[in-house]
């Protein structure tokens, strides 16, 4: 059976043909059903581009992106995305936002069934009391929960999370990390979670893959397996030696890659060889006027007056 997701030598660059900037090169990734993968990288290193390749919003320039052994030709509900900036429709209430997905994916269901389905997912993200509210009446964390509910309601085979929590404060972030991990425990869908936070990556995922910047675009580094048992308790886990070792290794990998990707050029600095002139004194000069240069001085007189 082919893996649920497979990227083979995928690369992507942007810009006009003669001045293209390579974003991703030679991305190879295999995700099996039920995997919880976290991809970690610097901001601007092409993480969102990578998730867009997987979702089908972008096509790779070279290489292939396959799902269940078939080429990904465009976006589809079987690969649900939770966007970084929530992407809720501001004129729809929480329920209506979730219903948008439910109505589209389950047209065969009756009205009541669809309402129940939406309510189930809203309850899953603990937003039932706010179900009639508009997104602007909710906090950032609540909005992201709605986005998660909407994506889950489409019953995706793969759940893609594009830095879902990076716009939130640290406390809300921690709560939501735990909650999404809990939901995953119950559903066990395949998850690809993109993040820029090493703690987050190690806490939630089974496989952590760094996206390393390089001179010709970023590429995936060596995978780290996180075998810590679930449910992972943040308070205990953060102090275990295993976690600390993994975090150190991960951070070092990322830092090394960053160092390598910044080319160093040594330049010799030289001050201009020019002397100040008194413009009130007319200089007698033949030929082309040139500034006075220290290197061309034949004799320098220094008068020192002792007082």
């Amino acid at each position: 059976m082919p893996p649920i997701l497979e990227l083979n030598g995928a690369s992507k660059s942007f810009g006009l043909p003669h001045e293209r900037t390579a974003i991703l090169t030679d991305i190879n990734l295999t995700v099996e059903e039920g995997d919880f993968v976290s991809i970690i990288g610097y901001s601007g290193s092409g993480k969102s581009t990578l998730i867009n390749l997987i979702s089908g919003l972008l096509k790779p320039d070279t290489g292939t992106a396959k799902m269940d052994g078939e080429l990904i030709t465009g976006p589809g509900p079987e690969r649900g995305i939770v966007f970084q900036n929530y992407s809720l429709l501001p004129w729809l209430t929480v329920t209506e936002n979730v219903r948008l997905a439910v109505d589209q994916i389950f047209p065969a269901m009756s009205e009541n069934e669809r309402a129940d389905c939406a309510a189930k997912y809203i309850d899953m993200v603990k937003l039932t009391p706010a179900s009639g509210k508009l997104p602007r009446e909710l906090s950032g964390g609540m909005r992201q929960r709605v986005s998660v509910a909407r994506t889950l309601a489409a019953n995706p085979k793969v759940l893609l999370l594009d830095e879902p929590l990076s716009a939130l404060d640290a406390l809300t972030r921690a709560t939501l990390q735990d909650e999404i991990a809990d939901i995953w425990e119950k559903n066990r869908t395949t998850v690809i979670w993109i993040t820029n936070d090493p703690d987050e990556a190690l806490l939630v995922a089974d496989r952590v893959i760094p996206l390393l910047p390089g001179r010709d675009g970023a590429t995936l580094g060596a995978e780290m397996k996180v075998s810590m048992t679930r449910p992972r308790l943040r308070s205990e886990l953060l102090h275990t030696t295993e976690f600390k070792a993994l975090k150190l290794q991960l951070v070092n990998t990322l830092l090394d890659a960053k160092r390598d990707s910044n080319p160093t050029i040594t330049k010799r600095l030289s001050a201009p060889d020019i002397l100040p002139e008194d413009l009130s004194i007319k200089r007698i000069q033949f030929g082309k006027a040139e500034p006075r240069r220290r290197s061309k001085l034949e004799r320098e007189e220094l008068k020192i007056e002792a007082s």
Binding site: P75, R79, I81, F83, L100, A101, Q104, A154
Partner: peptide, 9 residues
């Protein structure tokens, strides 16, 4: 918003 529409087809 358009991406949401695309993903949901």
């Amino acid at each position: 918003y358009l991406n949401v529409a695309k993903v949901l087809k």
